[in-house]
Structure formats: structure tokens, C-alpha cells
């Protein structure tokens, strides 16, 4: 695999909380343009991996190489800056801001206006504000919730909140979009619509890292899948192979994998 093809490499990433090892030397490689799935039973360390990747946690050892450069640990805004955007397992929107304002916050990183611009409202600031609003509107269209643009985020339905979170993440112009259980709590129709959305995002050039409980969704969407169990990667391959891996089946205790 050439360096050009690789977007993210995790090298022996380890994290523990007190005496509990949450991640034990996890290494994996994500290629550009793929949808990569990360699955595992509850408490296997999937979200911990996400949090280390996006700088919310500081991993004790190991490191990430993203887009050819080493990631600084413990700095979430820097992770976003180099192009890693994420959503949260338990949706974290700015509840008392409107949907469009939420997405506009996502544009913060890629815009420049400072205090002086805000106070003087000069031409370039006004132009930038207009561009922010326009882009936010486009993104709301893209995820399909533009009718709710001026509703407060906390008043949106569960599925719409998930979509809004994705729109906000996309506003930061990520190279890698990390989705933490986006289908949790969704019904079948909503999950299908989500699948279409994620496929579209990938087609439009954003690599996707997907943590999911819905094994069917992962197997249908992802090009490759890694399985975590007790903080260790026990398997990494295409879905068809992963499904038959005895370690994986054991980890799920004979759960409905197929």
C-alpha cells in the first residue's frame, strides 16, 4: 500500500483508566476513500479509541499518523484542524442554537473574522458571514434537514439531530469523518436513509470511520472492518471474512453476527 493511499495509521495506541486497560496496543490503517468499520461488544474500547484519535483523551503510548503527519495528542481543536471531524455517541449539539447556527459554528475553523472584523463589520467580514450562512444552508440541504434550519437543535427529532451533527462535522471540511454509533436508536427506515447519506459522503471524497452496534449496517456499508474486544484488536478484514472469524463470533458470545 503506498503512502498516498493511506489516510490514518494508528500505531500501538494504548490507554488505561486507573488499572483498567481500555485500549491495548491497537494498530490499524485506514485508506483514503473507504468506509472503515470499528465494531465490538459494549465496553470493547471503541469510543475510547475515538476519543484518543480526536484528542479528547491522551493516550499513554502509541501515536496516530494522519495524512502523513503525526497527530498531536490531547488537542481536540487541532485534530479538527488537520481534518478529523466527529459525531458523538450521545449526540452533543448546541441545543439552544438553531440548526443552521450549529452548522455555522462548524465553519469556525475554516473562516477568519476576528473581533475587529466583527466590530467594524467591514466588507470582508460581511462577505465571510454570508459565505458561512450559505455553506451552512447547503450542508443542511445535503443531509436533508433544511426545512428545520431555524428550529432550535434541541427541538429536532432524534434522527434529525443525528443528521445535524453530521452536517456540523462536515462543515469543518474533514478528510476523515468519524461517526460514533450514528444509527443508535434509529428505526429501520431512518437507518436506511442514514446508509444512503454515509455512502454519499464517502462518494463525495470523505473517508468515513464508523463505530456501530448495528452489525448489519456495518457489514453492508464498510469496505473493511476491525473488531475490538477488551481493548484489543482481534481481527481486521473485509466484512465477509470478519463475520466468519471464530474469535469474533466468540467475542460476541454467539451473538447474531451473520
Amino acid at each position: 500500500m503506498s503512502a498516498q493511499q493511506v489516510l490514518l495509521e494508528a500505531h500501538a495506541v494504548a490507554k488505561h483508566f486507573g488499572g483498567v486497560k481500555a485500549l491495548h496496543d491497537v494498530s490499524l490503517t485506514i485508506r483514503r476513500g473507504e468506509i472503515y468499520g470499528l465494531i465490538g461488544p459494549n465496553g470493547a474500547g471503541k469510543t475510547t479509541f475515538f476519543n484518543c484519535l480526536t484528542g479528547l483523551y491522551k493516550n499513554e503510548s502509541g501515536h496516530f499518523v494522519f495524512d502523513g503527519a503525526r497527530l498531536a495528542a490531547d488537542a481536540p481543536h487541532k485534530a479538527a484542524e488537520v481534518g478529523i471531524a466527529r459525531t458523538f455517541q450521545n449526540i452533543r449539539l448546541f441545543g439552544n442554537m438553531t440548526a443552521i447556527e450549529n452548522v455555522m459554528v462548524g465553519r469556525h475553523l475554516r473562516t477568519r473574522a476576528g473581533v475587529l472584523g466583527a466590530i467594524t463589520r467591514n466588507a470582508s467580514t460581511r462577505a465571510e458571514e454570508a459565505a458561512i450562512a450559505r455553506r451552512a444552508e447547503e450542508l443542511l440541504h445535503y443531509v436533508g434537514i433544511h426545512e428545520r434550519a431555524h428550529d432550535y437543535a434541541k427541538n429536532l427529532s432524534y434522527g434529525d439531530q443525528r443528521r445535524l451533527e453530521i452536517a456540523r462535522a462536515l462543515a469543518t471540511e474533514p478528510k476523515l469523518l468519524a461517526l460514533d454509533e450514528p444509527a443508535a436508536g434509529m428505526n429501520g427506515t431512518e437507518t436506511d436513509a442514514l446508509r444512503v447519506l454515509v455512502e454519499g459522503i464517502c462518494r463525495d471524497g470523505v473517508t468515513v470511520l464508523l463505530i456501530e452496534h448495528d452489525v448489519k449496517l456495518v457489514m453492508g456499508l464498510c469496505g473493511r472492518v476491525a473488531v475490538l474486544d477488551y481493548g484489543e484488536k482481534i481481527c481486521e478484514d473485509v466484512p465477509a471474512v470478519v463475520q466468519r472469524d471464530p474469535r469474533v463470533i466468540e467475542a460476541y458470545l454467539g451473538g447474531s453476527l451473520a
Binding site: 480526536t54 484528542g55 479528547l56 481536540p76 481543536h77 485534530a79 479538527a80 484542524e81 471531524a85 466527529r86 458523538f88 452533543r92 449539539l93 448546541f94 441545543g95 439552544n96 442554537m97 447556527e101 455555522m104 459554528v105 462548524g106 465553519r107 469556525h108 475553523l109 473562516t111 473574522a113 476576528g114 473581533v115 472584523g117 466583527a118 466590530i119 463589520r121 467580514t125 465571510e128 458571514e129 458561512i132 456540523r168 462535522a169 462543515a171 469543518t172
Partner: peptide, 27 residues
């Protein structure tokens, strides 16, 4: 003027949810 600006939005975002604001790339 600050209230309705990029900076003002960032402040509000921090007030609402600091972790999410960081994840949006706000220093």
C-alpha cells in the same frame, strides 16, 4: 456586533457544550 459574529457564535457554542465546541475545531 460581537453577539452576531463568528466569535460570538464560538462563545455561545462553548457555553452550550465545550467538548462539542472543541470537536468543531474551536480553540
Amino acid at each position: 456586533r460581537l453577539q452576531d459574529s463568528r466569535i460570538g457564535r464560538a462563545w455561545q457554542a462553548i457555553r452550550e457544550d465545550e467538548v462539542a465546541a472543541k470537536a468543531c475545531g474551536i480553540n
